[in-house]
């Protein structure tokens, strides 16, 4: 059948080389080949966003991208978000504001929120909700996710923030 294709990409700062079937989805390459299981699969129609990662600095749904399409790219997954042992402010916000329950949508939700804050440092409630429309959460009802993103935004702007039991 179809020949395998050589690919090379940087994932969370490490260079990865491999050969994949053209049909292998990026999400399966990350999860199955590289063992980065933090990126999840919640649907088969590109609705849920549990698989969101950053490719060349932009949020994408890794279930709607063949690994070959990311050839030569730089990919960041949820596992790559912690820097020097420090949580990304969005991760911290989700923890402080109880922005997750079962945690399954959380990696994609965090990656989508981080993408928003890269583009808009001071989003309104409505802007946050609009930016997260491609990420479904069945547990939280979203209110605490909005608060988590606001927390992260404030922290990234260098403003004081209030945590869970403060």
């Amino acid at each position: 059948m179809a020949d395998k294709v050589r690919i090379r990409m940087t994932v969370n700062g490490l260079e990865q080389r491999g050969e994949v079937e053209p049909r292998m989805l990026l999400v399966h390459y990350l999860r199955e080949t590289l063992g980065l299981t933090g990126t999840h699969i919640g649907c088969d129609t590109s609705q849920c966003g549990a698989c969101v990662v950053h490719v060349d600095g932009q949020a994408v749904k890794s279930c709607t991208l063949f690994a070959v399409q990311a050839d030569g790219s730089s990919v960041t997954t949820i596992e790559g978000l912690v820097k020097d042992g420090q949580y990304h402010p969005v991760q911290e916000g989700f923890w402080e504001k109880h922005g997750l329950q079962c945690g399954f949508c959380t990696p994609g939700m965090i990656m989508a929120a981080a993408d928003l804050l890269n583009k808009n440092s001071n989003p309104t409630d409505a802007e946050i909700r609009h930016a997260l429309e491609g990420n479904l959460c069945r547990c939280t009802g979203y209110q605490n996710i909005v608060l988590a993103v606001q927390y992260a935004a404030a922290k990234m702007r260098g403003e004081p923030v209030t945590g869970a039991a403060d």
Partner: peptide, 14 residues
């Protein structure tokens, strides 16, 4: 208090 379940889940280490 914030949840003890969360550190692994927010890092994709669930």
């Amino acid at each position: 208090i914030k949840r003890r379940e969360d550190p692994r889940l927010i890092q994709g280490r669930g």
